[in-house]
Design a protein around this nucleic acid. Structure first.
Length: 557
RNA sequence: UGGGGUGUGGCCAAGCGGUAAGGCACGGGACUUUGACUCCCGCAUGCGUAGGUUCAAAUCCUGCCACCCCAGCCA
């Protein structure tokens, strides 16, 4: 089997004869804490866990790591499940909660106490901090460190029974107060907390810490490979310590990889929350946010996100992936799938002066040149059309081959027209563009075979729909809004990250649509209906991503 | 000499002692009834750095440098 990344390398070794998991089935898990919404960074972890299991013919569990009731809520559990399903992964019947293991964890803690590997400490949080030492100096042993096991066991049971106040005492591992690894300086294993747990209610008033709970959760589920992010590297010795000192049914292996960062975006829960709560964006599913619900509303497909996650690779290097790569993956997917449609986002009236006033005709347009099997649809044409304001200029500039007086252009699938001028109001705003058409060019090709370089899209003024179009761009202009910790990144928000066009015109074939799905607005980009605001009689489209535009690129700076 | 990690082109990333894959971005060109798509071409005499071992080093060894993580009763 070929390894796609260093984790696969390790797994292959583990599975080999004499390896740590020889003869075992690979088992991974995705263990979110239900305290917020999932984002693209989680998607990377989800893809790594599920695809690794799949690659080796194993399984991946979904587990809510709910060991801290003061931060967790049920509403998140549902959104997390929904997002993972949406991405296209299935955990079948293997959906678990860390809280289901509380009784077993308590039992393991008692084992540790009996072995003299853990003790009840009555130091306050402040005292624990003070005696922990610093990065360069060893800590001091707690005065309770040598408390007899019987006494600790008794206290631990009374802790569980609610005899003590929150924070009054803790269960601590007895490891090494002078370890260079801070996590090994007698870490707290259990704390007293009377917050209401979303699943166990008030059954417990003591809760295990992550470092104690996680290896047990993994072991109980027979996880072989516990894949997590880099910041847990220093916790691995403690993870192994717990497994080694309890009567563990399994010996899972933790492997760490670098989490995903994206340019032009903020990923941390705290920062996203602030953007939402201070109303810089429209909720957790704002299309500019890197949350999965935001990306979904923006029109990102699960396939594009999965593909993105697979292609960015897995390593231990601190990395920031260019947002342009995510966009590339979306375009690549939508180019194959999205039906083409004509829409004029910023309309200006085009009058074809030599076209009869009351005449109308119909043209057939292909739905997707990439997929001829998708068939064709009809669009109507008449004397007055809407065209994109950008497609007309009063004067030619170098390289511009759209409409300007005297110049010919093709109206997609219809006729070749020649621009004759424009009308303006008193302020000098262009109110209409004038042109004449070539009656012998029906369909778009000139009878004399002359080549027409430019083709523009259009919509019949007599047969179209008004729509609101929301043009989204990066939330942050800076590639790295997240770098300097203390900077007020809100001030760096891109003022043009949302431009609303309320009077856009879209072709009639879109009338009444409510189905989810993406369209390519010809020459503009990929768009989808906004799931929150669009109504069959008042369409609202979100721009998922623009088409690549070498003209625009060439003309800026 | 706290501990743990990482350094390959602008951004990801292969490479596992035999003479620098691939993708994105970027630049050029072809094609084009989407300035899209597609297709060509270009883009590291170089792998943090200095030495060493070897016929041969991004890969092995040593020193140095840079950056990231750790002192929650968060995960």
């Amino acid at each position: 089997m070929e390894a796609a990344n260093f984790i696969h390398d390790e797994i292959i070794k583990d599975l080999a004869p004499g390896g740590r998991f020889e003869g075992k089935k690979v088992h991974t898990r995705f263990p979110p804490e239900p305290n917020g919404y999932l984002h693209i960074g989680h998607a990377k972890a989800i893809v790594i866990n599920f695809s690794t299991a799949e690659k080796f013919g194993g399984q991946c569990n979904l587990r809510m790591d709910d060991t801290n009731p003061s931060k967790e809520e049920v509403e998140y559990v549902d959104s997390i499940k929904q997002d993972i399903h949406w991405l296209g992964y299935d955990w079948e019947d293997r959906f678990y909660f860390a809280s289901d293991y509380f009784p077993q964890m308590f039992e393991y803690a008692c084992q540790l106490i009996r072995k003299g590997k853990a003790y009840i400490c009555e130091l306050t949080a402040e005292q624990i901090r003070q005696t922990r030492g610093t990065l360069k100096t060893p800590g001091k042993p707690s005065p309770y460190r040598d408390r007899p096991a019987d006494e600790s066991l008794d206290l631990f049971n009374r802790m569980k029974d609610g005899e003590f106040k929150d924070g009054q005492m803790t269960l601590r591992a007895r490891i090494d107060m002078s370890s260079g690894n801070m996590n090994m300086r007698d870490p707290v294993l259990y704390r007293i907390s009377r917050s209401h747990h979303h699943r166990t209610g008030d059954t417990w008033c003591i809760y295990p810490m992550y470092d104690f709970a996680h290896p047990i959760e993994d072991a109980l589920e027979s996880i072989t490979h516990s894949l997590c992010s880099l910041e847990f590297e220093d916790h691995r010795p403690l993870y192994d310590w717990v497994i080694d000192h309890i009567d563990s049914p399994a010996r899972p292996r933790q492997i760490e990889f670098a989490r995903l960062n994206l340019t032009h975006a903020v990923m941390s829960k705290r920062k996203v929350r602030q953007l939402v709560e201070d109303n810089w964006v429209d909720g957790w599913d704002d299309p500019r946010l890197p949350t999965l619900s935001g990306l979904r509303r923006r029109g990102y497909t699960p396939e594009s996100i999965r593909n993105f996650c697979e292609r960015i690779g897995v390593s231990k290097v601190y990395s920031t992936v260019d947002y342009a790569f995510l966009e590339h993956c979306l375009r690549e997917d939508l180019n194959k799938k999205a039906p083409r449609v004509m829409a004029v986002v910023n309309p200006v009236r085009l009058v074809i002066d030599n076209y009869p006033e009351n005449r109308s005709e119909t043209f057939e347009v292909e739905n997707n040149p990439e997929r001829p099997e998708d068939g064709k649809r009809e669009v109507t044409f008449s004397r007055e059309l809407w065209i994109e304001a950008d497609d007309f200029r009063e004067e030619k500039i170098k390289g511009y081959f759209r409409l300007f007086p005297g110049h010919e252009v093709r109206l997609k699938t219809a006729y070749i027209i020649r621009c004759t001028g424009c009308d303006k109001d008193e302020q000098g705003n262009i109110t209409a563009v004038h042109a004449t058409y070539d009656p012998d060019s029906r369909g778009g090709n000139a009878a004399d075979g002359r080549k027409i370089k430019g083709t523009i899209h259009w919509v019949d003024t007599n047969n179209c729909l008004d729509a609101e179009v929301r043009l989204y761009d990066n939330l942050f202009k800076d590639a790295d809004p997240d770098t300097e910790e203390q900077r007020d990144y809100m001030e760096r928000i891109n003022q043009d990250s949302l431009v609303v066009r309320r009077h856009s015109k879209v072709e009639i074939s879109l009338s009444g649509t409510s189905a989810p799905g993406s369209y390519q607005f010809l020459r503009l980009g990929y768009f989808c209906l906004d799931k929150n605001d669009s109504k069959p009689d008042r369409l609202v489209f979100n721009r998922s991503v623009s088409l690549r535009d070498s003209w625009k690129k060439r003309n800026k700076t």
